Computed example of a mutant assay.
Amino acid sequence: MAGLNVSFAFFALVVGVCQVLRWLSKRLLSPAVYECLARELAGSLQLCMSFLELRMLMEIGLWGGGFGPDVILTLLFLLFLVHGASSDGAFANPAVSLQEFLLCESNLAATAAKLLAQAVGMGTGWAATKLYWSWELTHFHVIQNLIAAECSSSIHTSLHHAAFVESICSFLFHLVLLKLHQSHPICWTPALAVTVTFLTYTAGPFTGAFFNPALATATTFHCSGNTLWDYIQVYWLGPLAGMLAALLLCQGNVPRLFQKNLLYSQKSKYKIPKARVVAHVEEPQQKKKGERNNSKPQA
């Protein structure tokens, strides 16, 4: 239990440091630079460090700590709940940034800046977590350091099935996001946390259920068992395909590429009552009759 308390303290420290980073960046930088760079970097740093520690608990804690999957799933839900509440709108997910670009909510320069910030944040988070593990504050970290050099791939099924699983997870995640993102964060933050927890519980044994290209790159790309192209197909192309499918289902098209709705017919939401149409038609006719009567010579 002492090891779990150290992990709780680590989670709290990471969130606190990233909150200070957001606060300072918002005060010192322009709103555009903050939204595209600093906010995404802080969100990616927080997500990567917290998820790596949680993944370590998932792999080692089940047999080395004596706690069951219910503890891990509860921690996973709380992790994404806190991330959604504290990230100030940064999802730290390249697929979400590309979705915003395809929806014309972000231009090319801002999208490129977000992707760069996410890559830097994930890389920094991976390096910082490795340094923290090297201190070996708990027996979990000791075991993690022993097995770190021989980590295995998170893909535990065929390549095509793994890519399909990641695309389905991404599809469901982005579907919930598209449906609820315009609502208040109090509504969509717990909904996304529940969605991520459910998808991880369901698809985790097959691929780890990342559906986040940057997070998967920092977490599992360095492990042996699959080639780089295998990882790209599963953890990059799979989530992007799922995002596009969710976008097409919700919008009927990709606004950045097509103006015409490809799936749904354009129908007016409002119907004009027939009585009003008849009234508008008869009114000009009555005026014309009145003008004819007035134009006749009077006896």
Rank of each mutant, 00 (worst) to 15 (best):
E53D: 13
G252S: 02
A241N: 04
L159N: 04
V120Q: 02
L116I: 15
N107K: 01
N293G: 00
P190C: 12
I168P: 00
N93H: 07
Q266S: 10
Y201A: 13
C36Y: 06
V15Q: 04
W236E: 07
S44D: 01
S265K: 09
K114C: 12
W126P: 00
L47N: 02
S295E: 11
P94C: 05
P190A: 15
Q298G: 03
F11V: 09
D70I: 09
W23T: 14
T200K: 00
S25W: 05
P185V: 15
M243T: 10
K130E: 07
G43F: 15
P69A: 10
A216V: 02
R39G: 10
R55D: 06
G290N: 12
C36D: 10
Q298V: 10
A117F: 10
I60C: 03
S152Y: 13
A127C: 04
E59K: 13
I72M: 04
E291S: 14
V278K: 12
C18F: 00
A12E: 05
Q182C: 12
L240S: 12
T157F: 01
A109H: 13
P213N: 04
Y231C: 07
T129W: 05
F173W: 12
D88H: 14
G66A: 13
W23G: 09
G61P: 01
E105L: 14
Q182V: 08
Q266R: 08
H184Q: 10
I60Q: 02
F51L: 12
S170F: 00
G3F: 10
W63G: 04
T157S: 15
P205E: 04
T138W: 03
K26C: 01
Q251A: 02
V33S: 15
C151T: 14
S153D: 06
W63I: 15
I72P: 00
V96N: 01
A241F: 11
W236Q: 10
P297Y: 09
W133E: 06
V142Y: 00
D88F: 00
L57A: 11
L244G: 01
F51P: 01
I147M: 13
L24R: 14
F11W: 12
L45R: 00
G65S: 11
S153E: 05
L257Y: 09
C187P: 02
C104F: 00
V6Y: 06
V71E: 01
T138K: 05
S265W: 11
S44W: 08
H141S: 09
S152R: 15
L244H: 05
Q182S: 14
C36W: 05
T220M: 04
L45A: 15
E100K: 10
P213H: 05
A128L: 12
A9Q: 07
R55H: 11
H174F: 15
L47T: 13
L244K: 07
L28Y: 11
E35M: 11
L172K: 04
W126Y: 09
S170N: 05
E40Q: 15
N294L: 12
P213G: 05
A92H: 00
H280R: 09
